[in-house]
Design a protein around this nucleic acid. Sequence first.
DNA 1: TAGTGGTCTAGACCACGGT
DNA 2: CCGTGGTCTAGACCACTAG
Lengths: 237, 237
Amino acid sequence: MKNKFIVIYNDLVQALRQGEYTAGDTLPSENELALRFETSRETIRKALNLLSQNGYIQKVRGKGSVILDHSKFEFPVSGLTSFKELSNQLGQTVKTHVHELILETANNQLRSMLNCSKDKRVWKISRTRDIDGERIILDKDYILEDIVPELTKSIAEHSIYDYIENKLELDISFAKKEIVVEGVTEEDKLHLDLDGHAQVVVIRSYVYLADATLFQYTESRHRPDKFQFVDFARRTK
Amino acid sequence: MKNKFIVIYNDLVQALRQGEYTAGDTLPSENELALRFETSRETIRKALNLLSQNGYIQKVRGKGSVILDHSKFEFPVSGLTSFKELSNQLGQTVKTHVHELILETANNQLRSMLNCSKDKRVWKISRTRDIDGERIILDKDYILEDIVPELTKSIAEHSIYDYIENKLELDISFAKKEIVVEGVTEEDKLHLDLDGHAQVVVIRSYVYLADATLFQYTESRHRPDKFQFVDFARRTK
DNA sequence: TAGTGGTCTAGACCACGGT
DNA sequence: CCGTGGTCTAGACCACTAG
């Protein structure tokens, strides 16, 4: 929080959230902001690029930084948001059941997915998410023991992400996700209240740390009527 | 294509695609690249940030720019990719049927979605996408007449995006998307080969131009067994 | 300790939009 | 024309990693 451009970014976000500027108007020019914040224009530009990436403004050459209607971009789910954050946002009654929490040697399929060698061991976690009393989501996680040596049922019931980021202080950096619809498996029938649905929405994620190591593969299986995914895609040319 | 950092970016992408570097290795340092490309370090950094945003490298402080296994990130569908680009990538036989192409005054629902006033008129386009002889996708587009005054059946059969970007020279900049699963409608039954499926995957998109104006709402309805969505989410802190 | 990427600066020139 | 954002430079200092 001590980088100058981050401070300026947070400053501007707060101003925007408090409605100090109106959607459609422009922010003060980069030169003026540079004067006001007593910094160089390039630093202001870094802050503005952050605002742009997060959907607060759109920069228009010759005109200025146009303020967007940010309420259109407040998502229930997005990007790397974990399940725990999601459930808090929706204000629903949520419970997590852990069916399985074991450490095993990776089989062929898992080794190729996690890109690891033969002798590596992997945490295998299987959890059901209850939302308002119905078992809606089945999460199957596979995590490299090298990165997370210790896991308990209590951690799995709370939030594995929270444990990894705050207790282990590892830096989760990016993820590749794939979303498809598949027929239900026996496992789905066992652990989910399918309510007659013959298909589930499957999100497969590969999660990486800041040092570019792949450490987790997750399969999140959702009952289709309760599934929602929101995405904000900015064109990078 | 004349910006120095874009040229350098494309240069490096090509080198990476041709396997001149191995996943897990690092690129030459920023200082060395600055010498090699005869430019300043900040310009090299812009090119490297582009590589990072697009999943080619991960920068690690004190270590270097680590090369990622980019084959994991070759998407069939992603971000703002249009249907036309998609079909070219997959090398499938694709045909587009236009059922409807009319200009009408926006009703209440449409006005709130496109954020426009009562008297505005909107292009309404309904198209089916045939993939290998099966009608898999139903696309319903709504485009503001203000932005796109003229549309023909031939344009709709080819690519509306292509027309907007290349003929009208408008700059499509970002989109907000939502993905859900819904029961099939009578319209779906009429225009799609549902093959027994009772549900479709629906992608709703709000598309914006570079000057931050919302100009299009699209509903893309996919047969679930043929649906895939891929996402590369980088954490921005 | 040497080398890496991360931040910041003060200045320059350019392309574009509106006046 | 002036003001806007977009690009580029040459240099500085810092934080981190590895040998």
